[in-house]
Amino acid sequence: MEKLLKAKDEEYVRNLFEQNLVEPVELVLFLESPGASRVTEHNKQYLAYTEEILTEVSNLSDKINLTIYKDDKEKEKEYGVENISAFFIEGKNTNKNIVYYGIPSGHEFSSLLEDIIDVSKGETQLPDKLKEMVRKISTNVNILVFVTPTCPHCPQAVRTAHQFALENKLIRSSMIEAQEFPEWSNKYNVYAVPKVVINDKMQFEGAVPEDTFLNSVYEALGIKLLF
């Protein structure tokens, strides 16, 4: 396959990583072979590209390691993989809870880069007040963020959800590239992105400020915050 990142972009990303990465980061990618049950006409064309882009990104820093599991049911179970492709960004403060389903292309490529940096630093850029509120959550929260690669404000929703996950191991946040998973999207009536679904209960569309997003998380837990 031809390289996906142009030389100029590689240079940019390499510098970005050099200046910002601290601790090692593990990218864990799950794939299936053609003909496997979760390879559909919608996601099959993207699998090789997802593998390629993660390979190229991991080659741009010594601190990033890529592990690929193919048709590995046991590992899929361990990570709670629901669809293919899936990948996890793992570091010392994560809990298999920063997840991407489908390819991080287009605008989502910037989410990938920023997530890697956050995980490597082991901290997010959320304001202190919000960090505190995120850490206080003491039950499991499952956040799904449906996106398309051409959606300019989708990374904001993905990044917020992933930062919440990095601040609290009970929160699992997944980006879902809607076009690769039409059944999943149909289940939640996704016709506009970003669309956020929290614990299957709370849903909203559009990019919102982080505090508004957190309000919705609490609301899904039955708690009405006043701030």
Binding site: Y46, G106, E114, Q125
Partner: peptide, 16 residues
């Protein structure tokens, strides 16, 4: 794949 024309590197925001 047209999506690959666009690997966007939006300037990351910060609170420094």
């Amino acid at each position: 794949m047209e999506n690959f024309d666009l690997f966007s590197e939006d300037m990351s925001s910060n609170r420094k």
